[in-house]
Design a protein around this nucleic acid. Structure first.
Lengths: 154, 154
DNA sequence: TATTGTTATACTCTATAACTATA
DNA sequence: TATAGTTATAGAGTATAACAATA
């Protein structure tokens, strides 16, 4: 370091930086695993969402995942093309649609979840249960706080 | 939840999932702030790297940031086009290059760091100092462990 | 042959904005 | 007019692989 250099705060201290660094690598490793099932990380997020909460409006999924409706629309197209999900028009509201898993999609989710388990173990397996749950709690807390604060996404 | 549904491990328990969720939002919010200085998040990572460790080989930067040389090459092009960095041929090795900040680039880093500070505060400001340093330690530890394990990136 | 870097190509991810159809 | 959803467009981010120059 140069003694005459402005500190620029402490460059190594931004949590966002390390979060992005680690997240990029965790997601990339996971993407390689999911690739063996021809599914991407973003697709997995939707499958996972629909698995617990089937027949949902695209806008609901968008809100849950923190994405725009346009993004969900495109991802849903891919899932449908792969035979993993369906899109159904609502009977009561001509504008509304519903997303759901096909039988194949539903069967696939536990397999993908096993890959997610393995990926998690590779990156976080060394953490003790207390550390692990502390991280999980902190992340979910941020989502909660930001979720309340956030203006509608589009 | 459907009582007959296979558990698929616990879908809400993948740290990688929450990490990606939070990281995406933190990075997006940061990108909006950096946009006011016409800098992207990936460009910031390089500027930040060169600020503390100037005149570095692209391959060194790639290794530090966990990216490929091709990715650095493209990002460096953009930084050079913006007048924030320079690329210099090595005298001793005809293949080697060196990246460094321009005076303007060096002046810009503290401003960007202030934006990073602000972004961090928005997302992590509610954490106590102990929580904060715990998260930081855990993230850096993962980088350390994975760094040792990882095969060269290309 | 091995290494440093660049370039060409291709995808995913995601947003914004315009648009369609319905309410 | 407002809302649900789709589509068009665009750009960031990144990888892989082929390539050129040098060692």
């Amino acid at each position: 370091m140069r003694p005459d250099m402005p500190t620029a705060s402490d460059l190594s201290s931004h949590l966002g930086y390390w979060l992005r660094y680690v997240s990029n690598h965790v997601s990339h490793a996971f993407a390689l695993k999911l690739g063996s099932c021809d599914v991407t990380v973003a697709e997995w997020a939707i499958l996972r969402e629909l698995y617990g909460d089937d027949h949902r409006a695209p806008s609901h999924v968008a809100h849950k995942l923190g994405l725009t409706r346009g993004a969900i629309s495109k991802l849903a197209d891919r899932l449908i093309a792969k035979g993993l999900a369906t899109r159904t028009a609502s009977a009561s509201d001509g504008r509304a649609q519903t997303l759901a898993l096909t039988a194949g999609g539903r069967r696939l989710v536990p397999k993908l979840a096993a890959l997610a388990d393995r990926n998690d173990a590779e990156f976080f397996g060394h953490l003790g249960p207390k550390q692990r749950s502390a991280v999980e709690r902190i992340l979910k807390e941020i989502v909660r706080i930001r979720g309340l604060k956030s203006t509608p996404i589009d």
